[in-house]
Each structure stands twice: as structure tokens, then as C-alpha cells.
Design a protein around this nucleic acid. Structure first.
Length: 152
DNA sequence: GCCAACGTTGGC
DNA sequence: GCCAACGTTGGC
């Protein structure tokens, strides 16, 4: 089963908020490479829930895909910050998925800690200049991150 | 708030 | 198709 990492600003959606809601739509992705990864996701896939643009950037827990990619409604919504005017001509380029809460780590596994781990140096997240908000995580990296999180 | 790095847009 | 300008991401 493929595993993933997805970034969210906790002000927008945090792992705690997902835990409270149980389920949420993951929308607003406006990068083609990230979108293509969304489209590759299947029901049941697990992902690392990453908190970005915040005081404590890092992996905050685990989520699960409960609905594979479908056209992102926020692209068609003029009120949405993610509105894409191109949808006016009838085509929606963007995709969303639905996710469920799986687990919150006792504390955030800090990006700074991840960067220190030699086994994670090939993780796309820590590649220089990488800004991808959705990315695949291979099994070795997945296991390494969970091991680090378990010893927090 | 700064700024490096990157993706996207649009004129040519 | 090139590439400069612009906007965005996201750590610090």
C-alpha cells in the first residue's frame, strides 16, 4: 500500500482538528505535481500529517484516505481563497480527497529532528528547495519516521 | 518580516 | 518554445 506525506497549515487544518472532526476534505492543492499524487491515492492509503508554516513545523500524526480523488469544489467557489477562475469555462483542473483521522503523535516530530536523521536525507520533504505539499513516502522512510515518533 | 527557491504565466 | 517577471511556499 502506498504511503504519503501531506502538508497543512495547522491554522487551516491541524491533526487535532481532524481528530475532533473525524473526517475532512483535503482541498486547495494548486500545484500539478501535488495534484497528480492526490490522484494516485486510493482509499485506505495512510499519510503523514505534516504541520507547515507554523511555530513547530513537523509531522504531527497519521491520517487515512477514505475517498480517492474527485474534482475539487473549492476551485469553482468564487468565495473560496482557492477559487480558480478557469473553472468558469467549465473545466476544473484540481482534485481533492477525503481523509480521516488515524493517530496524533504525543508531540510533533520536528522537521529539525527529521533533518538530523541520515536515513531520511532522501525524503523529498528535506530536499533543498522542495515545496511539494503532497509527496510519496517509501516504506523505509515511513518506518523510520514512525520509529522516531514512537520514541518522542 | 525576510528571502531563497521554485512553479506559473504570458509576451514575444 | 524561451525566458523574464511575478506570485507562492515555508523555514527561519
Amino acid at each position: 500500500m502506498p504511503t504519503w506525506l501531506m502538508k497543512s497549515e495547522p491554522d487551516e487544518l491541524s491533526i487535532q482538528e481532524l481528530a475532533r472532526q473525524g473526517q475532512a476534505r483535503w482541498d486547495g492543492v494548486r500545484n500539478f505535481q501535488a495534484r497528480n499524487y492526490l490522484r494516485a491515492m486510493q482509499e485506505g492509503d495512510l499519510f503523514l500529517f505534516y504541520h507547515s508554516s507554523c511555530a513547530q513545523p513537523g509531522v504531527a500524526g497519521i491520517g487515512r484516505i477514505v475517498q480517492g480523488a474527485y474534482p475539487d469544489p473549492s476551485a469553482c467557489d468564487p468565495q473560496s481563497p482557492y477559487h480558480d477562475p478557469r473553472t468558469a469555462s467549465g473545466k476544473n483542473l484540481w482534485s481533492a480527497v477525503d481523509v480521516a483521522f488515524e493517530e496524533a503523535f504525543p508531540e510533533v516530530l520536528a522537521l529539525s529532528r527529521i533533518k538530523l536523521c541520515d536515513d531520511l536525507k532522501d525524503l523529498p520533504l528535506v530536499q533543498k528547495g522542495s515545496r511539494l505539499s503532497v509527496m510519496p513516502v517509501n516504506l523505509e522512510h515511513w518506518d523510520t519516521i514512525l520509529r522516531l515518533a514512537r520514541q518522542l
